[in-house]
Simulated scan of single mutants.
Amino acid sequence: MPLKFNAIFGELEGQSWIIYFQPGIITTFLFVLTSVNGILWVTEKRLKISDRGTVAGIKFGHIIAASVISDTVVIIVQVGIVIFMMVYLYDLDIKGSWELAVLLMFLVSLSGQSFGYLFATLTNNEMDIIIILMFLNGVLLVGSGVVWPLETVRMSWRVLCLMLPVSIPTASLRSIIFRGWGLDHTEVLQGFAVTICWIVVTLGVNIWLNRRKK
């Protein structure tokens, strides 16, 4: 009885590891890049700039909202540069919806930004948050399915890996790019839902922690 093998991602022949890496590299790079904004918030805390704003009646929620709005333009530029480099330098071919892929990248960037503000709230100097971001970058590269499929790891380790903020979005972006799937597939929808949940939860915890400090 002849057997027919179908590739889960891409093609069985002629596909390099670089092509498989692309979605994970995109999500991880954008996440870490935008989380670096937390360093600026730590600097403002150390220089007591944020305290002056509090005295003037500016609430932390106002700062977060203003930062998200002002950094949206920066995030859009970053996403555009990443897509340009992947398409023209690494032959990225998005078989699915470009709109969905770009929107997911944008949400992942916002998620990284919200994590950056959370780390800034939990630390008091720039070196602490830099060490956290360096550690997080390594964990994301190893454990979020960027360089190795999570389907091949032990179930106990896979559960922990799926709890990382870019694991499920990476799988969703990979399905959009290689499979051409849309929101009618659960795996793609999960990526958007998980990313939005991380944004809401981290921002909510961040605002709650700052209110408790007062």
Results as ranks from 00 to 15, higher is better:
residue 201 V to P: 05
residue 163 M to A: 14
residue 193 A to K: 03
residue 187 E to L: 12
residue 158 R to I: 03
residue 160 L to M: 12
residue 161 C to D: 11
residue 189 L to P: 01
residue 156 S to R: 15
residue 152 T to G: 10
residue 193 A to S: 08
residue 185 H to F: 11
residue 167 S to H: 07
residue 172 S to M: 03
residue 179 R to D: 08
residue 177 I to L: 03
residue 183 L to W: 06
residue 185 H to A: 13
residue 161 C to Y: 11
residue 196 I to K: 01
residue 200 V to C: 06
residue 197 C to I: 09
residue 163 M to I: 10
residue 162 L to F: 15
residue 161 C to K: 00
residue 143 G to K: 03
residue 188 V to P: 07
residue 155 M to W: 15
residue 158 R to Q: 14
residue 154 R to F: 11
residue 159 V to T: 13
residue 144 S to C: 08
residue 184 D to V: 06
residue 156 S to A: 13
residue 159 V to L: 14
residue 179 R to P: 02
residue 189 L to Q: 09
residue 197 C to K: 10
residue 200 V to M: 09
residue 160 L to N: 02
residue 181 W to N: 08
residue 160 L to W: 08
residue 198 W to N: 08
residue 178 F to L: 10
residue 194 V to M: 08
residue 159 V to W: 14
residue 175 S to K: 12
residue 148 W to G: 10
residue 147 V to K: 12
residue 145 G to A: 10
residue 180 G to Q: 01
residue 199 I to M: 03
residue 176 I to W: 01
residue 144 S to V: 04
residue 188 V to I: 04
residue 183 L to F: 08
residue 149 P to W: 08
residue 166 V to E: 05
residue 147 V to G: 14
residue 149 P to V: 07
residue 162 L to I: 08
residue 180 G to H: 04
residue 159 V to C: 07
residue 173 L to R: 03
residue 168 I to W: 03
residue 191 G to H: 06
residue 178 F to E: 11
residue 155 M to C: 08
residue 170 T to I: 07
residue 144 S to W: 07
residue 186 T to R: 11
residue 167 S to I: 01
residue 157 W to T: 12
residue 169 P to L: 01
residue 162 L to R: 15
residue 156 S to M: 15
residue 168 I to T: 05
residue 187 E to Y: 11
residue 195 T to H: 00
residue 143 G to A: 07
residue 160 L to H: 07
residue 184 D to G: 09
residue 148 W to S: 12
residue 166 V to L: 04
residue 170 T to Q: 01
residue 144 S to T: 09
residue 183 L to S: 00
residue 185 H to W: 13
residue 150 L to C: 12
residue 155 M to V: 15
residue 164 L to I: 03
residue 181 W to L: 15
residue 172 S to L: 05
residue 146 V to Q: 10
residue 154 R to P: 12
residue 144 S to A: 15
residue 152 T to Y: 13
residue 168 I to A: 00
residue 144 S to E: 09
residue 161 C to W: 06
residue 155 M to L: 15
residue 154 R to S: 14
residue 156 S to K: 12
residue 172 S to C: 03
residue 186 T to K: 11
residue 151 E to W: 12
residue 194 V to F: 06
residue 157 W to Y: 13
residue 152 T to F: 15
residue 174 R to M: 07
residue 182 G to C: 04
residue 201 V to K: 02
residue 157 W to M: 15
residue 199 I to K: 04
residue 155 M to I: 15
residue 169 P to S: 05
residue 175 S to M: 11
residue 171 A to G: 07
residue 158 R to C: 08
residue 148 W to V: 09
residue 185 H to C: 04
residue 167 S to F: 06
residue 173 L to V: 00
residue 193 A to L: 13
residue 154 R to L: 11
residue 170 T to F: 01
residue 176 I to G: 01
residue 171 A to V: 09
residue 175 S to C: 09
residue 148 W to Q: 11
residue 201 V to C: 00
residue 184 D to Q: 11
residue 161 C to L: 05
residue 180 G to R: 05
residue 162 L to S: 12
residue 160 L to R: 04
residue 167 S to D: 04
residue 199 I to C: 00
residue 189 L to K: 09
residue 173 L to P: 05
residue 146 V to R: 09
residue 196 I to M: 02
residue 169 P to W: 00
residue 194 V to E: 04
residue 172 S to K: 07
residue 185 H to G: 04
residue 190 Q to M: 15
